[in-house]
Design a protein around this nucleic acid. Structure first.
Lengths: 185, 185
DNA sequence: TAACATTCAGACAGACCTGTTCGCTTTTTT
DNA sequence: AAAAAAGCGAACAGGTCTGTCTGAATGTTA
């Protein structure tokens, strides 16, 4: 087998998101993925590192997806921002969506000095920078402010959509974001 | 001693918020609070119940505080909503603020069937109902929508303010909320 | 087919988990 | 001051945690 690493990461991802990180022991991860313990520790030097790889992988997937979808819209004045809102709604209403991974990381490891918490904060900041840059490209004056406000709505909306899936949170978050964008033009 | 229960709850609260719930063992809680294990299990039949009492206590405190501050403003047309935004910013920028407790509960216990998760969702819904009713009293037409949108912003802002305390998230969340309120009048 | 690398199952260490039960001591009430 | 209640420390049960190591069984390459 060549994709041991991938298989382990896939199983770990499912377990982390369905049971939580602390509640998913290494023994469970190797049992579910049919892998020896030594193999896991060969590809991931520690559970912390496995968690961080999980966060990174999820983040990469998100940006790859949204950048592809947004590729032809960029620079198209404010249109890119409105399309972003649609994609956001689409993303968090997908059945596979289980909350933002870096929320799990930062909550389960509240100590700011912990590598998992630290990396989670980095990912949240990365999202903020991404959205701010998108706003800047779209010609928003105070792009920094709108970027962070969109981050706030997106993270809050993701949280509530996961807690109460059929409450309409995703659409209302999208609409709130649109209102904010229009107000900042 | 008469306030054993309170002491246990206080220590548990601090531990839950600084280390996380799963990472705070019963042994640690009793050691920090100088209480015998049997005493803890007399006041709280299980750790789950202790967690739920922690969530309830924190929630009660919040509503008591905000209702007191808002008492004279209620019914004062939209003024109550703007004051609410100020209080919100105040609340999450307090040094004692460590994130929304029901976020911790829902993330650390992702299984919807788990009592802690279930109660956490209840608390998030309660916040939403509270804000919706406030909006209704203030005369907002679609109070349900504004209520949930404010919830989204408040929860998202709380999250990011905790992750990046000095990024201005609290103020921008407040301003976003104000923009949304004005847009819905 | 022979040499090499990888993966396997499982034991092991040392620590921690929740919850129960035990006498013994302290505090409160009558 | 005597009786009742409450709390203490400590041990116990049965399980789980991360991480290391071993020898045997696979798989790959030459």
């Amino acid at each position: 087998m060549k994709n041991m690493r991938e298989k382990i990461l896939t199983v770990a991802t499912q377990l982390f998101e369905s049971r939580g990180i602390h509640a998913s022991g290494v023994d469970t991860i190797i049992a579910e993925s049919g892998v020896a313990k030594a193999t896991l520790y060969k590809y991931f030097p520690s559970k912390n590192q496995l968690i961080i790889e999980y966060l990174r992988e999820k983040s990469n997937r998100f940006y790859a997806w949204i950048n592809e979808k947004l590729a032809d819209k960029k620079g198209d004045s404010q249109e890119v921002l409105f399309e972003l809102c649609n994609l956001y709604e689409q993303w968090i209403t997908t059945p596979e969506f289980n909350g933002l991974p870096f929320h799990i990381g930062s909550v389960e490891f509240p100590d700011p000095a912990h590598p998992v918490h630290h990396y989670s904060v980095e990912l949240s900041n990365e999202l903020q920078h991404y959205l701010s840059e998108l706003a800047a490209i779209a010609g928003i004056k105070d792009a920094q402010t709108l970027g962070q406000q969109l981050t706030i709505i997106f993270e809050g909306g993701a949280m509530i959509e996961r807690l109460s899936p059929d409450s309409g949170a995703a659409r209302r978050a999208k609409n709130a974001a649109i209102t904010l964008i229009k107000a900042s033009i």
